[in-house]
Design a protein around this nucleic acid. Structure first.
Lengths: 84, 84, 84, 84
DNA sequence: GATGCGCTTTAAATGC
DNA sequence: GCATTTAAAGCGCATC
C-alpha cells in the first residue's frame, strides 16, 4: 500500500472537485438557457444581463454595509485605538 | 396588463437567473473548500489544481475526438447516397 | 531597412504600453501608500477598504442604471419587437 | 467635534483613494486602446501582449540580478570586519 | 523578523 | 470584439 502522491486520497479529492466543477458548469449552462429562453420570448438578453448586474451590485453593497457595521461593532470594543 | 420592462415575465427570468447564479457561486465555494481541506491534509492545492486541469484537458481532447469520429461516421453514412 | 515583426512600429506600441503600465503600477503604489498613511494615523485599513468597495459598487450600480435607461430609450424606437 | 467613523479625515482618505483608483482605471483603459490601435494597424494583440510580458519578465530578472549584486557587494564590504 | 497563508487583484485564455 | 472564466501574482496578516 502506498502513500505516493497519486494515492487514493488524492484521487478522491480530484474526483470531488471534478464533480463540483461539473455541477458548476451545469449551472452556467442553465443560466445560458434561461437567457436563450428569455430571448426566445422576445426579451433582450442584454437588458436582462444589466438588470441582473445592477441588482447584484446593489445586493453586494448592502451586504458589505452590514459587514462594515459588524466591523464597527468590533471597533467599539477597542475605542480609542481604532480612530485617532 | 402591462408589457413594461418590469413586467412579471421579466422579473421571473431575472429571479431564475439569480437563483442559478447563487447555486453556481455555492459550487465555486464548495470547490474552494475542497482545496482547503486537501491542503489541510497535507496536499499542495497548486498541484491538485494542475491535476484537475490536465485531466479536464484530456477529457476534452477525448470528447472532441469522439465528435470527430461522429463526423466521420456521418460522412460514411453519406457515402451510400453519394455513390449509389 | 525592415518591416519585420520587430519593426519600429511594433517597438513603439510595446513601449507605449510599457509606459502606461508603469504609470498604472505607480497609481497602485500610491493607493497603497494612502492606506499605509491612514493606518499610520490610526485608521483601520480594512474599514477604509470596505468603505471604498461599498461606494464603488453603489456608483457602478448607478452608472449601469443610467446605461439601462439609455438601452430602454433605444428600445422605445423599436417598440413591439423588444417586449412580447 | 467628532471622531466618528465618518469623520472628515476618513472621508479625505477615502476620496484620495477613489481619485487614485480612477486614474488607475484610466491607465488600464489607455492600455486597452493602444492594443486596439495596434490591432487596427495590423498587429496581433496577442503577440504584443506576449512581447510585453517577456520584456517585463526580463526586466524583473535583471533587476533581481542587480539586487543580488548589491547583496554580494554588502557581503564584500563586511569582509574587512569579519576577517581583520 | 521571517515564513506561510488566505485573499484580493491582475493577466491570460476561452467562448459567444 | 467583448465578456466571462481561470490561472498566477502580490499583498497584508498572523504566527512563530
Amino acid at each position: 500500500m502506498s502513500n505516493a502522491p497519486n494515492s487514493e486520497h488524492l484521487k478522491a479529492y480530484v474526483e470531488r472537485i471534478e464533480r463540483l466543477e461539473d455541477e458548476k458548469r451545469a449551472m452556467a449552462e442553465d443560466i445560458k438557457e434561461v437567457y436563450s429562453e428569455a430571448k426566445g420570448t422576445g426579451y433582450d438578453a442584454k437588458i436582462i444581463r444589466k438588470l441582473v448586474s445592477i441588482r447584484r451590485k446593489k445586493a453586494e453593497a448592502v451586504r458589505e454595509e452590514a459587514e462594515l457595521l459588524a466591523v464597527y461593532a468590533d471597533a467599539l470594543g477597542m475605542q480609542g485605538t481604532l480612530f485617532p
